[in-house]
Design a protein around this nucleic acid. Structure first.
Lengths: 215, 215
DNA sequence: GTCTATAATTAGATAGAC
DNA sequence: GTCTATCTAATTATAGAC
Protein backbone atom coordinates (compact mmCIF):
# COMPACT_ATOMS: atom_id res chain seq x y z
CA UNK A 1 0.00 0.00 0.00
CA UNK A 2 1.50 3.29 -1.08
CA UNK A 3 -0.13 6.15 0.77
CA UNK A 4 0.29 9.06 -1.61
CA UNK A 5 -1.49 11.94 -3.23
CA UNK A 6 -5.07 10.93 -4.07
CA UNK A 7 -8.27 12.88 -4.43
CA UNK A 8 -6.34 15.89 -5.75
CA UNK A 9 -8.08 16.11 -9.13
CA UNK A 10 -4.97 15.50 -11.14
CA UNK A 11 -2.20 12.99 -10.47
CA UNK A 12 -2.71 9.74 -8.56
CA UNK A 13 -0.93 6.41 -8.27
CA UNK A 14 -3.96 4.37 -8.98
CA UNK A 15 -5.23 6.32 -11.97
CA UNK A 16 -4.87 3.33 -14.28
CA UNK A 17 -7.40 1.45 -12.18
CA UNK A 18 -9.68 4.42 -11.98
CA UNK A 19 -9.57 4.90 -15.75
CA UNK A 20 -10.42 1.24 -16.24
CA UNK A 21 -13.32 1.40 -13.81
CA UNK A 22 -14.70 4.56 -15.39
CA UNK A 23 -14.36 3.12 -18.88
CA UNK A 24 -16.52 0.15 -17.90
CA UNK A 25 -19.31 2.52 -16.92
CA UNK A 26 -18.78 4.71 -19.99
CA UNK A 27 -18.83 1.78 -22.42
CA UNK A 28 -21.87 0.30 -20.68
CA UNK A 29 -23.82 3.54 -20.82
CA UNK A 30 -22.98 4.60 -24.36
CA UNK A 31 -21.81 1.51 -26.20
CA UNK A 32 -18.43 1.24 -27.88
CA UNK A 33 -19.08 3.76 -30.65
CA UNK A 34 -20.86 6.20 -28.37
CA UNK A 35 -18.19 6.12 -25.68
CA UNK A 36 -15.31 8.60 -25.93
CA UNK A 37 -11.90 8.49 -24.34
CA UNK A 38 -12.30 12.17 -23.49
CA UNK A 39 -15.43 11.41 -21.47
CA UNK A 40 -13.64 8.62 -19.60
CA UNK A 41 -10.81 11.02 -18.81
CA UNK A 42 -13.30 13.62 -17.57
CA UNK A 43 -14.96 11.10 -15.23
CA UNK A 44 -11.61 10.37 -13.62
CA UNK A 45 -10.20 13.88 -13.71
CA UNK A 46 -7.20 13.20 -15.91
CA UNK A 47 -6.31 14.25 -19.43
CA UNK A 48 -7.31 12.25 -22.46
CA UNK A 49 -3.77 11.30 -23.66
CA UNK A 50 -3.14 9.59 -20.32
CA UNK A 51 -5.56 6.90 -21.39
CA UNK A 52 -3.41 6.13 -24.39
CA UNK A 53 -0.35 6.01 -22.21
CA UNK A 54 -1.97 3.34 -20.02
CA UNK A 55 -3.96 1.36 -22.58
CA UNK A 56 -2.61 2.22 -26.03
CA UNK A 57 -5.93 2.64 -27.85
CA UNK A 58 -9.66 2.94 -27.32
CA UNK A 59 -10.17 -0.65 -28.44
CA UNK A 60 -7.52 -1.93 -26.02
CA UNK A 61 -9.25 0.00 -23.24
CA UNK A 62 -12.54 -1.64 -24.20
CA UNK A 63 -10.92 -5.07 -24.07
CA UNK A 64 -9.52 -4.34 -20.62
CA UNK A 65 -12.99 -3.23 -19.48
CA UNK A 66 -14.49 -6.48 -20.77
CA UNK A 67 -11.82 -8.50 -18.92
CA UNK A 68 -12.71 -6.64 -15.74
CA UNK A 69 -16.43 -7.27 -16.28
CA UNK A 70 -16.08 -11.00 -16.88
CA UNK A 71 -13.57 -11.33 -14.10
CA UNK A 72 -16.20 -10.08 -11.70
CA UNK A 73 -18.86 -12.34 -13.14
CA UNK A 74 -16.85 -15.57 -13.01
CA UNK A 75 -15.77 -14.79 -9.45
CA UNK A 76 -19.41 -14.72 -8.46
CA UNK A 77 -20.36 -17.78 -10.50
CA UNK A 78 -17.59 -19.85 -8.94
CA UNK A 79 -18.76 -18.85 -5.48
CA UNK A 80 -22.17 -20.17 -6.48
CA UNK A 81 -20.96 -23.64 -7.36
CA UNK A 82 -19.88 -24.43 -3.81
CA UNK A 83 -23.28 -23.59 -2.43
CA UNK A 84 -24.90 -25.60 -5.18
CA UNK A 85 -23.10 -28.77 -4.10
CA UNK A 86 -24.38 -28.45 -0.55
CA UNK A 87 -28.01 -27.66 -1.34
CA UNK A 88 -31.08 -29.56 -2.40
CA UNK A 89 -31.23 -29.22 -6.24
CA UNK A 90 -34.30 -27.02 -6.29
CA UNK A 91 -32.79 -24.73 -3.67
CA UNK A 92 -29.50 -24.73 -5.55
CA UNK A 93 -31.24 -23.25 -8.55
CA UNK A 94 -32.92 -20.65 -6.36
CA UNK A 95 -29.60 -19.73 -4.78
CA UNK A 96 -27.98 -19.36 -8.18
CA UNK A 97 -30.74 -17.14 -9.44
CA UNK A 98 -30.55 -14.93 -6.36
CA UNK A 99 -26.79 -14.61 -6.65
CA UNK A 100 -27.14 -13.53 -10.24
CA UNK A 101 -29.67 -10.91 -9.19
CA UNK A 102 -27.37 -9.59 -6.47
CA UNK A 103 -24.45 -9.54 -8.86
CA UNK A 104 -26.36 -7.48 -11.39
CA UNK A 105 -27.53 -5.07 -8.71
CA UNK A 106 -23.96 -4.63 -7.55
CA UNK A 107 -22.46 -4.30 -11.04
CA UNK A 108 -25.17 -3.28 -13.50
CA UNK A 109 -22.54 -2.18 -16.03
CA UNK A 110 -21.38 -5.72 -16.69
CA UNK A 111 -24.52 -7.08 -18.32
CA UNK A 112 -25.13 -3.79 -20.06
CA UNK A 113 -21.66 -3.83 -21.58
CA UNK A 114 -22.32 -7.29 -23.02
CA UNK A 115 -25.78 -6.46 -24.27
CA UNK A 116 -24.62 -3.23 -25.91
CA UNK A 117 -22.29 -5.24 -28.15
CA UNK A 118 -24.62 -8.11 -28.95
CA UNK A 119 -26.85 -6.58 -31.65
CA UNK A 120 -24.18 -6.18 -34.31
CA UNK A 121 -21.72 -8.78 -35.51
CA UNK A 122 -18.29 -7.27 -35.13
CA UNK A 123 -14.73 -8.42 -34.45
CA UNK A 124 -15.23 -7.10 -30.93
CA UNK A 125 -18.29 -9.29 -30.38
CA UNK A 126 -16.51 -12.32 -31.80
CA UNK A 127 -13.56 -11.76 -29.49
CA UNK A 128 -15.82 -11.34 -26.46
CA UNK A 129 -17.81 -14.47 -27.27
CA UNK A 130 -14.78 -16.66 -27.99
CA UNK A 131 -12.74 -15.52 -25.04
CA UNK A 132 -15.38 -15.01 -22.36
CA UNK A 133 -19.03 -15.60 -23.10
CA UNK A 134 -19.03 -19.04 -24.72
CA UNK A 135 -17.23 -20.76 -21.83
CA UNK A 136 -19.65 -19.17 -19.38
CA UNK A 137 -22.69 -20.23 -21.36
CA UNK A 138 -21.35 -23.78 -21.70
CA UNK A 139 -21.11 -23.90 -17.92
CA UNK A 140 -24.72 -22.76 -17.66
CA UNK A 141 -25.77 -25.44 -20.14
CA UNK A 142 -24.17 -28.14 -18.03
CA UNK A 143 -26.09 -27.01 -14.96
CA UNK A 144 -29.32 -26.75 -16.94
CA UNK A 145 -28.90 -30.27 -18.29
CA UNK A 146 -28.33 -31.72 -14.85
CA UNK A 147 -31.54 -30.00 -13.76
CA UNK A 148 -33.29 -31.63 -16.72
CA UNK A 149 -31.88 -35.09 -16.01
CA UNK A 150 -32.76 -34.79 -12.35
CA UNK A 151 -36.36 -34.26 -13.39
CA UNK A 152 -36.49 -30.84 -11.77
CA UNK A 153 -36.72 -28.62 -14.84
CA UNK A 154 -39.23 -28.77 -17.65
CA UNK A 155 -37.79 -29.79 -21.04
CA UNK A 156 -37.67 -26.33 -22.58
CA UNK A 157 -35.11 -25.06 -25.12
CA UNK A 158 -32.16 -23.85 -23.12
CA UNK A 159 -31.39 -20.97 -25.48
CA UNK A 160 -34.73 -19.33 -24.84
CA UNK A 161 -34.49 -19.92 -21.11
CA UNK A 162 -30.97 -18.54 -20.85
CA UNK A 163 -31.69 -15.40 -22.83
CA UNK A 164 -34.95 -14.81 -21.02
CA UNK A 165 -33.09 -14.92 -17.75
CA UNK A 166 -30.15 -12.85 -18.99
CA UNK A 167 -32.61 -10.28 -20.26
CA UNK A 168 -34.94 -10.24 -17.26
CA UNK A 169 -32.47 -9.93 -14.42
CA UNK A 170 -30.22 -7.01 -15.34
CA UNK A 171 -32.77 -4.86 -17.12
CA UNK A 172 -34.41 -3.91 -13.81
CA UNK A 173 -31.09 -2.49 -12.60
CA UNK A 174 -29.51 -0.92 -15.64
CA UNK A 175 -32.74 0.90 -16.47
CA UNK A 176 -32.61 2.67 -13.10
CA UNK A 177 -33.07 6.16 -14.59
CA UNK A 178 -36.10 4.96 -16.54
CA UNK A 179 -37.62 3.32 -13.44
CA UNK A 180 -37.04 6.50 -11.48
CA UNK A 181 -38.96 8.48 -14.09
CA UNK A 182 -41.80 5.95 -14.20
CA UNK A 183 -42.28 5.18 -10.52
CA UNK A 184 -39.90 7.39 -8.56
CA UNK A 185 -37.87 4.73 -6.79
CA UNK A 186 -34.31 3.43 -7.05
CA UNK A 187 -34.14 -0.26 -8.05
CA UNK A 188 -30.57 -0.43 -6.75
CA UNK A 189 -31.61 0.25 -3.15
CA UNK A 190 -31.50 -2.87 -0.92
CA UNK A 191 -35.24 -3.31 -0.45
CA UNK A 192 -35.93 -3.29 -4.18
CA UNK A 193 -33.02 -5.57 -4.95
CA UNK A 194 -34.46 -8.04 -2.46
CA UNK A 195 -37.96 -7.67 -3.89
CA UNK A 196 -36.68 -8.22 -7.42
CA UNK A 197 -34.80 -11.35 -6.34
CA UNK A 198 -37.94 -12.71 -4.64
CA UNK A 199 -40.10 -11.91 -7.63
CA UNK A 200 -37.77 -13.38 -10.24
CA UNK A 201 -37.25 -16.58 -8.31
CA UNK A 202 -40.98 -16.96 -7.88
CA UNK A 203 -41.69 -16.19 -11.54
CA UNK A 204 -39.03 -18.42 -13.01
CA UNK A 205 -39.62 -21.39 -10.74
CA UNK A 206 -43.39 -21.65 -10.34
CA UNK A 207 -44.72 -18.86 -12.56
CA UNK A 208 -47.04 -15.92 -12.22
CA UNK A 209 -50.35 -17.82 -12.19
CA UNK A 210 -51.83 -18.52 -8.79
CA UNK A 211 -53.28 -21.94 -9.61
CA UNK A 212 -50.92 -24.40 -11.29
CA UNK A 213 -53.33 -24.61 -14.25
CA UNK A 214 -51.73 -27.47 -16.13
CA UNK A 215 -52.68 -27.33 -19.80
CA UNK B 1 -49.91 7.92 -55.19
CA UNK B 2 -47.13 9.20 -57.37
CA UNK B 3 -45.54 6.42 -59.37
CA UNK B 4 -42.02 7.63 -60.11
CA UNK B 5 -38.35 6.72 -60.08
CA UNK B 6 -37.52 4.31 -57.27
CA UNK B 7 -34.72 1.80 -56.68
CA UNK B 8 -32.26 3.90 -58.68
CA UNK B 9 -29.68 4.33 -55.95
CA UNK B 10 -29.96 8.06 -55.84
CA UNK B 11 -33.16 10.03 -55.99
CA UNK B 12 -36.50 8.65 -54.87
CA UNK B 13 -39.85 10.06 -53.80
CA UNK B 14 -40.03 7.97 -50.70
CA UNK B 15 -36.52 8.59 -49.46
CA UNK B 16 -37.80 10.40 -46.37
CA UNK B 17 -39.49 7.18 -45.27
CA UNK B 18 -36.47 5.10 -46.06
CA UNK B 19 -34.21 7.44 -44.08
CA UNK B 20 -36.58 7.20 -41.13
CA UNK B 21 -36.70 3.42 -41.29
CA UNK B 22 -32.91 3.15 -41.56
CA UNK B 23 -32.42 5.57 -38.67
CA UNK B 24 -34.53 3.37 -36.41
CA UNK B 25 -32.18 0.47 -37.07
CA UNK B 26 -29.10 2.67 -36.76
CA UNK B 27 -30.18 4.18 -33.43
CA UNK B 28 -31.19 0.77 -32.11
CA UNK B 29 -27.88 -0.82 -33.03
CA UNK B 30 -25.55 1.94 -31.89
CA UNK B 31 -27.47 4.10 -29.44
CA UNK B 32 -27.99 7.81 -29.93
CA UNK B 33 -24.37 8.85 -29.40
CA UNK B 34 -22.98 5.98 -31.43
CA UNK B 35 -25.31 6.49 -34.38
CA UNK B 36 -24.20 8.82 -37.15
CA UNK B 37 -26.24 10.61 -39.79
CA UNK B 38 -23.61 9.64 -42.34
CA UNK B 39 -24.17 5.97 -41.57
CA UNK B 40 -27.93 6.36 -41.93
CA UNK B 41 -27.38 8.06 -45.29
CA UNK B 42 -25.11 5.22 -46.38
CA UNK B 43 -27.73 2.61 -45.47
CA UNK B 44 -30.24 4.33 -47.70
CA UNK B 45 -27.89 5.36 -50.48
CA UNK B 46 -28.35 9.11 -50.21
CA UNK B 47 -26.05 11.91 -49.12
CA UNK B 48 -25.77 13.02 -45.53
CA UNK B 49 -27.11 16.58 -45.98
CA UNK B 50 -30.37 15.14 -47.31
CA UNK B 51 -31.12 13.95 -43.80
CA UNK B 52 -30.95 17.51 -42.54
CA UNK B 53 -33.20 18.64 -45.35
CA UNK B 54 -35.88 16.16 -44.28
CA UNK B 55 -35.48 16.18 -40.50
CA UNK B 56 -33.52 19.27 -39.54
CA UNK B 57 -31.14 17.70 -37.03
CA UNK B 58 -29.90 14.39 -35.66
CA UNK B 59 -32.02 14.82 -32.56
CA UNK B 60 -35.17 15.51 -34.59
CA UNK B 61 -34.43 12.39 -36.63
CA UNK B 62 -34.15 10.41 -33.39
CA UNK B 63 -37.50 11.77 -32.21
CA UNK B 64 -39.11 10.76 -35.48
CA UNK B 65 -37.63 7.27 -35.14
CA UNK B 66 -39.06 6.97 -31.63
CA UNK B 67 -42.48 8.06 -32.87
CA UNK B 68 -42.30 5.37 -35.54
CA UNK B 69 -41.27 2.75 -32.99
CA UNK B 70 -44.05 3.54 -30.52
CA UNK B 71 -46.58 3.86 -33.29
CA UNK B 72 -45.88 0.26 -34.22
CA UNK B 73 -46.03 -0.89 -30.64
CA UNK B 74 -49.34 0.75 -29.78
CA UNK B 75 -50.88 -0.56 -32.98
CA UNK B 76 -50.08 -4.07 -31.83
CA UNK B 77 -51.14 -3.49 -28.23
CA UNK B 78 -54.53 -2.15 -29.31
CA UNK B 79 -55.05 -5.21 -31.48
CA UNK B 80 -54.45 -7.27 -28.37
CA UNK B 81 -57.17 -5.64 -26.35
CA UNK B 82 -59.96 -6.91 -28.59
CA UNK B 83 -58.79 -10.47 -28.24
CA UNK B 84 -58.45 -10.01 -24.52
CA UNK B 85 -62.12 -9.12 -24.16
CA UNK B 86 -63.22 -12.30 -25.91
CA UNK B 87 -60.95 -14.75 -24.10
CA UNK B 88 -60.87 -16.50 -20.76
CA UNK B 89 -58.63 -14.31 -18.52
CA UNK B 90 -55.81 -16.82 -18.30
CA UNK B 91 -55.81 -17.28 -22.06
CA UNK B 92 -56.00 -13.52 -22.54
CA UNK B 93 -52.71 -13.14 -20.70
CA UNK B 94 -51.18 -15.91 -22.80
CA UNK B 95 -52.38 -14.24 -26.00
CA UNK B 96 -50.95 -10.90 -24.94
CA UNK B 97 -47.61 -12.44 -24.10
CA UNK B 98 -47.48 -14.24 -27.45
CA UNK B 99 -48.34 -11.07 -29.34
CA UNK B 100 -45.58 -9.22 -27.59
CA UNK B 101 -43.15 -11.96 -28.57
CA UNK B 102 -44.25 -11.82 -32.21
CA UNK B 103 -44.01 -8.05 -32.21
CA UNK B 104 -40.45 -8.11 -30.93
CA UNK B 105 -39.47 -10.75 -33.47
CA UNK B 106 -40.93 -8.62 -36.24
CA UNK B 107 -39.45 -5.33 -35.01
CA UNK B 108 -36.48 -6.05 -32.76
CA UNK B 109 -35.25 -2.47 -33.16
CA UNK B 110 -38.14 -1.01 -31.17
CA UNK B 111 -37.32 -2.49 -27.79
CA UNK B 112 -33.63 -2.04 -28.39
CA UNK B 113 -34.08 1.64 -29.15
CA UNK B 114 -35.90 2.12 -25.84
CA UNK B 115 -33.40 0.08 -23.82
CA UNK B 116 -30.43 1.87 -25.36
CA UNK B 117 -31.69 5.15 -23.91
CA UNK B 118 -32.78 3.89 -20.52
CA UNK B 119 -29.46 3.69 -18.66
CA UNK B 120 -28.73 7.42 -18.58
CA UNK B 121 -31.04 10.20 -17.48
CA UNK B 122 -31.20 12.64 -20.35
CA UNK B 123 -33.67 15.11 -21.83
CA UNK B 124 -34.22 12.53 -24.57
CA UNK B 125 -35.18 9.84 -22.07
CA UNK B 126 -37.49 12.24 -20.24
CA UNK B 127 -39.22 13.16 -23.47
CA UNK B 128 -39.61 9.51 -24.49
CA UNK B 129 -41.02 8.54 -21.10
CA UNK B 130 -43.44 11.46 -20.84
CA UNK B 131 -44.72 11.27 -24.37
CA UNK B 132 -44.74 7.53 -25.04
CA UNK B 133 -43.57 5.09 -22.41
CA UNK B 134 -45.51 6.20 -19.32
CA UNK B 135 -48.94 5.95 -20.97
CA UNK B 136 -48.08 2.48 -22.25
CA UNK B 137 -46.86 1.28 -18.86
CA UNK B 138 -49.97 2.69 -17.17
CA UNK B 139 -52.05 0.59 -19.57
CA UNK B 140 -50.04 -2.48 -18.62
CA UNK B 141 -50.56 -1.71 -14.94
CA UNK B 142 -54.32 -1.62 -15.41
CA UNK B 143 -54.29 -5.04 -17.03
CA UNK B 144 -51.98 -6.41 -14.36
CA UNK B 145 -54.25 -5.14 -11.60
CA UNK B 146 -57.32 -6.70 -13.14
CA UNK B 147 -55.39 -9.98 -13.25
CA UNK B 148 -54.62 -9.53 -9.57
CA UNK B 149 -58.20 -8.72 -8.61
CA UNK B 150 -59.47 -11.63 -10.65
CA UNK B 151 -57.31 -13.90 -8.51
CA UNK B 152 -55.36 -15.10 -11.52
CA UNK B 153 -51.99 -13.53 -10.84
CA UNK B 154 -49.85 -13.81 -7.74
CA UNK B 155 -49.47 -10.59 -5.75
CA UNK B 156 -45.98 -9.69 -6.94
CA UNK B 157 -44.58 -6.16 -7.41
CA UNK B 158 -45.63 -5.06 -10.87
CA UNK B 159 -42.43 -3.12 -11.52
CA UNK B 160 -40.30 -6.23 -11.24
CA UNK B 161 -42.72 -8.26 -13.32
CA UNK B 162 -42.96 -5.67 -16.07
CA UNK B 163 -39.22 -5.15 -16.38
CA UNK B 164 -38.53 -8.86 -16.25
CA UNK B 165 -40.89 -9.36 -19.13
CA UNK B 166 -39.63 -6.34 -21.08
CA UNK B 167 -36.12 -7.62 -20.62
CA UNK B 168 -36.76 -11.29 -21.34
CA UNK B 169 -38.80 -11.05 -24.54
CA UNK B 170 -36.76 -8.82 -26.86
CA UNK B 171 -33.30 -9.84 -25.77
CA UNK B 172 -33.62 -13.17 -27.58
CA UNK B 173 -34.24 -11.32 -30.83
CA UNK B 174 -32.01 -8.28 -30.69
CA UNK B 175 -29.05 -10.41 -29.67
CA UNK B 176 -29.37 -12.40 -32.90
CA UNK B 177 -25.68 -11.99 -33.86
CA UNK B 178 -24.63 -13.18 -30.42
CA UNK B 179 -26.94 -16.19 -30.58
CA UNK B 180 -25.60 -17.04 -34.01
CA UNK B 181 -22.05 -17.06 -32.63
CA UNK B 182 -23.04 -19.16 -29.61
CA UNK B 183 -25.32 -21.75 -31.20
CA UNK B 184 -25.37 -21.10 -34.94
CA UNK B 185 -29.07 -20.48 -35.45
CA UNK B 186 -31.20 -17.43 -36.27
CA UNK B 187 -33.70 -16.57 -33.50
CA UNK B 188 -35.70 -14.52 -35.99
CA UNK B 189 -36.61 -17.53 -38.11
CA UNK B 190 -40.23 -18.68 -37.67
CA UNK B 191 -39.53 -21.94 -35.83
CA UNK B 192 -37.42 -20.22 -33.19
CA UNK B 193 -39.87 -17.37 -32.78
CA UNK B 194 -42.57 -19.94 -32.10
CA UNK B 195 -40.35 -21.85 -29.68
CA UNK B 196 -39.47 -18.69 -27.82
CA UNK B 197 -43.15 -17.76 -27.53
CA UNK B 198 -44.00 -21.22 -26.20
CA UNK B 199 -41.13 -21.16 -23.73
CA UNK B 200 -41.79 -17.69 -22.40
CA UNK B 201 -45.49 -18.31 -21.92
CA UNK B 202 -44.73 -21.52 -20.08
CA UNK B 203 -42.04 -19.91 -17.95
CA UNK B 204 -43.99 -16.82 -17.01
CA UNK B 205 -47.29 -18.55 -16.31
CA UNK B 206 -46.39 -21.79 -14.53
CA UNK B 207 -42.61 -21.61 -14.17
CA UNK B 208 -39.63 -23.77 -15.01
CA UNK B 209 -40.03 -26.34 -12.24
CA UNK B 210 -41.81 -29.56 -13.14
CA UNK B 211 -43.62 -30.05 -9.84
CA UNK B 212 -45.48 -27.04 -8.46
CA UNK B 213 -43.34 -27.17 -5.30
CA UNK B 214 -45.18 -24.64 -3.20
CA UNK B 215 -42.88 -23.25 -0.51
C1' DG C 1 3.31 8.99 -14.91
C1' DT C 2 1.08 13.04 -16.34
C1' DC C 3 0.80 17.08 -18.78
C1' DT C 4 0.37 20.57 -23.15
C1' DA C 5 0.24 20.98 -27.91
C1' DT C 6 -1.18 19.33 -32.02
C1' DA C 7 -1.98 16.25 -36.14
C1' DA C 8 -5.39 13.56 -38.75
C1' DT C 9 -9.95 12.15 -39.10
C1' DT C 10 -14.75 12.35 -38.63
C1' DA C 11 -18.94 14.35 -36.74
C1' DG C 12 -23.27 17.43 -37.37
C1' DA C 13 -24.77 21.19 -39.86
C1' DT C 14 -25.23 25.10 -43.59
C1' DA C 15 -24.94 27.39 -48.37
C1' DG C 16 -25.89 27.19 -52.78
C1' DA C 17 -26.08 24.85 -57.51
C1' DC C 18 -29.15 21.94 -60.23
C1' DG D 1 -35.78 17.06 -53.47
C1' DT D 2 -31.06 15.96 -53.94
C1' DC D 3 -26.46 16.96 -54.70
C1' DT D 4 -21.41 19.12 -53.97
C1' DA D 5 -18.64 21.87 -51.24
C1' DT D 6 -17.47 23.47 -46.98
C1' DC D 7 -17.46 25.18 -42.00
C1' DT D 8 -16.84 24.18 -37.10
C1' DA D 9 -16.40 21.23 -33.40
C1' DA D 10 -15.17 16.90 -31.52
C1' DT D 11 -12.71 12.48 -31.90
C1' DT D 12 -8.56 9.21 -31.61
C1' DA D 13 -3.94 9.34 -31.47
C1' DT D 14 1.11 11.04 -31.31
C1' DA D 15 5.21 14.03 -29.89
C1' DG D 16 7.63 15.96 -26.54
C1' DA D 17 8.22 18.78 -22.09
C1' DC D 18 8.33 18.11 -17.07
Amino acid sequence: MQESNRKRGRSSKISRDRILEASLVEFAENGYEGATTASVARRVGVTQPLIHYHFGSKEALWRAAVELAFGRMTTVLQGVEEDVLRAEPRDAIRIMARRFVYFNARYPEVARLIISESAVRSPRLEWMVDKHLRPLIRQLEVMFKSGLEGGILKPLPIQSVVFAFLGAVPHFFDAAPLIDLLWGFDPLSPEYVEAHADTLVEMFTTGLFRTPDVA
